[in-house]
Write a protein that binds this DNA or RNA. Structure first.
Lengths: 253, 253
DNA sequence: AACAAATGTGAGCACTGCTCTTGACTTCCC
DNA sequence: GGGAAGTCAAGAGCAGTGCTCACATTTGTT
């Protein structure tokens, strides 16, 4: 099994194939730049062709159509976000669940603020007429939620994730959904904590989206970093994460 | 002071002006339909002109350009959402804070699921190259957050909003922002509860956005209503809302 | 009825995604 | 080596877009 074992073709790549792959890489790179500058809906194959120094129809040799390029950029962005989140999380000791949670959230926010247009492609309103092919995007697209759930599940197994109370009981139809998810991901967390994890997940992206999309009015928050940190602490509490090791930091209710 | 006292022209509208206003209304209505069907980025003035039974350049007599139409649709959508939220909230007694909170969240979700493209225009990724004119959109655009803050502030003044603990203390720079907001909106809630309110606000839209934008994989949640209700209860708890009147419903910690 | 403002028309420019034909070039196989 | 097969870029062309402008028509008012 030499080379990359992805496709079922064990042949070594011919020079042609290598050149072709390199051109596609260039197209994706240029597309990423255009995406970052002009946004997803304004992504133009002709503009990419111009930057590539080639006539517009030539890029159709490498990329089937605009949707295909969008899909490539989607996967590219999901993976870059996933890489950064993974790196930020694994930079802290596995037992520091609260620290890892904070690192995960901060990494998402950092990437989103640095790449607002690409973040919008992933988590904003869907591009009209474009449907992401699930079989190619669900893998990269679920890396962050997998990381979060693995984190919370690890904390649960270590006895460091305790139900914070409040809210409501899990009703049977919801419990069925949660059971399916728990089995599918090999988790151990309880229904209530799993539901809390899902809420924390969407809340995290809600907070990031408001900031990235400029939904807060301009100048409303002069200290956005502090606001996000505060939110992150509240979300850790909402998820049920106990405060950092040692001292029973949990305030008296 | 007869008529509507909006513009500094107290004259009664001429038939011409009435016809003009009616045409603009028609354009907005048709644009709304196109928006709902094809999405914001695919909104086409030419298509609207066709539906209006007029040549494309004629609509430029009524709407300066595509951006102007987008702005009109933005305001229209914000107001429709605001109207529905206000109606849902005021349908319950003013003292039923938890009920009103639930009604607010459910109204937002209901409208978003019914009008996904318009919701995307308001809370999704910004349309590339389009900047909403703040002086015309901040009014309608802040109705929901005003309603939520008024609700939480009312609960606070009635002693029915108590700090749920957890999270972190408010650091000075954030406190300054919160103080400015509190003064600007005439609120009384504490810093921590105000910050919680902001988090609940973004979390609500995060949960709705994930559902509307199909960020949950297809078929992940067979019972989305129950999931949202569960989230809503958790968010009410996060905000510090005490459960409905009478019995000390608060579960033992 | 006459005038002037408001409104509608159609041509036109520059742009987009995408298709198709044509010609040139590279690679492989006999 | 020489042909065959495959690959690639070019350019024309189609249908659509936003938007402008000169011109024609309608319409309300004087």
């Amino acid at each position: 099994m030499p080379q990359t074992a992805s496709a079922p073709s064990p042949k070594p790549p011919t020079p042609r194939e290598r050149a072709r792959a390199r051109t596609i890489e260039d197209i994706v790179r240029l597309g990423r730049d255009h995406l970052a500058v002009h946004g997803a809906a304004a992504l133009s194959l002709r503009a990419v062709a111009r930057d590539l120094g080639v006539v517009s129809s030539a890029v159709y040799r490498y990329v089937e159509n605009r949707e295909e390029l969008l899909t490539l950029l989607l996967i590219d962005a999901y993976n870059e976000l996933g890489d950064e989140v993974d790196a930020a999380v694994s930079a802290l000791p596995a037992a520091d669940f609260a620290g890892r949670f904070s690192a995960l959230g901060s990494a998402v926010r950092r990437w989103a603020l640095r790449e607002p247009a690409r973040y919008g492609l992933l988590f904003g309103s869907p591009v009209p007429g474009y449907r992401a092919p699930a079989e190619r995007t669900t893998g990269p697209g679920t890396r962050v939620i997998y990381a979060l759930m693995a984190l919370l599940d690890g904390a649960y197994r270590a006895g460091r994730l305790v139900d914070p109370g409040g809210g409501a009981a899990v009703v049977p139809p919801l419990a069925a959904d949660l059971a399916r998810i728990r089995d599918g991901m090999g988790l151990a967390v309880s229904d209530r904590l799993l539901a809390r994890g899902a809420l924390v997940w969407t809340s995290l992206f809600g907070a990031v989206s408001f900031e990235v999309f400029g939904q807060y009015g301009a100048g409303t928050f002069a200290a956005p970093d502090e606001l996000f940190s505060h939110h992150l602490a509240a979300l850790a509490d909402l998820a049920g994460l106990c405060a950092a090791d040692g001292a029973g930091e949990r305030p008296a209710y």
